[in-house]
């Protein structure tokens, strides 16, 4: 290799590796969900964590399924998602060290003001879904294996609907994130299941309003796990564990409880509830 070639290669490598803001040595990657990011929770709590520990938390917002896969591949240090069975499987397969319950929020069923299924104001999500199916009102499903999608599928099951078999043209799976699903529902005046946080910070509502809320079956538990350093040596286990410890500490729990949009609390800390 001659001098010129070598210099060009070094310069090329420098372009890739010496990107701006690359030199943040004290940082971790957290694979999380679009709901936590889009709701603005991270924007509220991460600066506090950084101020206390000096650790930069880089959040990659994905669907729960993809976030778990990112952890499984070793591309994140911490996974912070909301789909308990999938999380427990992640830990039992050895990809996660231990699952910590952190907080819950709740889902709300969003629908058009005109309320074609006649369910507005109900507190019974199961009855509401049955009515939507019976009337064939338009319904937008995330269809992306996210935590919200899995919760929706579970609710259909509880309502006694085999959605894979019973779905008609009224049931549209868009295979995208929460925001895209809300945009689609807003554009087509359809019902959609959303997490409250994303709904509250969502700006393009059009004619959409909350149709059903407050049912216990709509609660949505979040858990956090350190990716196993035994599976992936690159995992920053000390920094990652520090983040988890802070999240479940009284300080972190208070920070979560303090996050509000328009005076409304979005997430309810429950780290002390070992059954959650």
């Amino acid at each position: 290799m001659n001098m010129l070639t070598r210099r060009v290669l070094i310069a090329a490598a420098a372009l890739v590796f010496a990107s701006p803001a690359f030199a943040q040595d004290k940082s971790i990657v957290v694979a999380s969900t679009t709901s936590t990011q889009d709701s603005g929770l991270f924007g509220h709590i991460l600066p506090m964590f950084k101020a206390k520990t000096g650790i930069d938390v880089k959040v990659v917002a994905q669907g729960t399924g993809q976030a778990l896969d990112t952890g499984r591949r070793g591309d994140a240090d911490v996974v912070f998602v909301h789909a308990r069975p999938a999380e427990e499987k992640f830990v039992s397969e050895g990809f996660g060290v231990k699952r910590y319950p952190v907080m819950y929020n709740d889902f709300v069923l969003i629908g058009p003001k005109s309320d074609p299924a006649g369910i507005k104001g109900s507190k019974d999500i199961v009855a509401a879904l049955s009515a939507i199916k019976a009337k064939g009102s338009d319904f937008i499903s995330r269809g992306d294996k996210s935590g919200t999608h899995q919760a929706e599928l579970n609710l259909w099951k509880v309502a006694g609907v085999d959605i894979a078999k019973d779905k008609g043209p009224w049931y549209k799976e868009i295979g995208q994130g929460m925001g895209a699903a809300l945009n689609t529902a807003s554009a087509s005046n359809a019902y959609v299941l959303a997490d409250r946080g994303t709904w509250l910070s969502f700006k393009n509502r059009g004619d959409l309003v909350i149709a059903v809320e407050g049912d216990k079956r709509l609660f949505n538990q979040y858990g956090v796990m350190l990716v196993s350093p035994e599976k992936h040596a690159s995992v920053k286990k000390d920094l990652g564990q520090q983040f988890i410890d802070w999240l479940v500490s009284s300080e972190g729990q208070k920070a979560i409880a303090d996050y509000k949009i328009n005076g409304e609390q979005l997430f309810y800390p429950n780290a002390s509830d070992s059954g959650a």
Binding site: G177, A180, N183, N204
Partner: peptide
């Protein structure tokens, strides 16, 4: 892409 998904058109 993010702002679109947040509905902040």
């Amino acid at each position: 892409a993010l702002e679109t998904s947040k509905g902040d058109l």
